[in-house]
């Protein structure tokens, strides 16, 4: 049913756990549907000054496919620029885990959604923080 790669990731998940003070968080899924993923990212810069995913972690409630694809998406995203990470598709994840049973394809979709939401969350916070910074500056002046 599951590939060796997926089972290996299920049994030895990479980047598993909660992150202290993440720069972005993506929460997707619903416990009623049987899978929930939380993706946490820390954003840094590479030598060319582009924003990259410096660190990434996940927590997942779900089946082996949900846990395995969560682990795989963190591996695929780590070190990538935000633009590259956003482009990781559900097919990329499914292919990287050595294929998924058709009924489990939504798990790989959930993993990529979680990642995109975390990046979105980072950008939103960054935007807010930028404005917030100016605001606080203003208030200090006042």
């Amino acid at each position: 049913m599951y590939s060796e790669i997926l089972l290996e990731h299920f049994r030895n998940p990479r980047n598993m756990g909660r992150m202290e003070k993440p720069d972005g968080v993506g929460k997707v899924g619903n416990p009623a549907c049987g899978d929930v993923m939380h993706i946490y990212i820390k954003v840094g810069k590479n030598s060319s000054g582009e924003e990259i995913i410096e660190d990434i972690k996940f927590e997942t409630f779900g089946c082996a496919a949900a846990i395995g694809t969560s682990s795989m998406v963190t591996e695929l995203a780590k070190g990538k620029t935000l633009e590259e990470a956003e482009k990781i598709s559900k097919e990329d994840v499914a292919e990287a885990v050595g294929g998924l049973p058709p009924i489990k394809m939504h798990c790989s979709l959930l993993a990529t959604k979680g990642l995109r939401k975390a990046i979105e969350d980072y950008r939103r916070k960054k935007g807010d923080a930028g404005e917030g910074g100016e605001d606080s500056g203003d208030s200090q002046e006042g």
Binding site: E59, T60, F61
Partner: peptide
């Protein structure tokens, strides 16, 4: 440990 839901935590119903 892998799950985002913990004892006394939120989100799990």
């Amino acid at each position: 440990r892998i799950s985002p839901f913990k004892r006394g935590g939120e989100g799990y119903v």
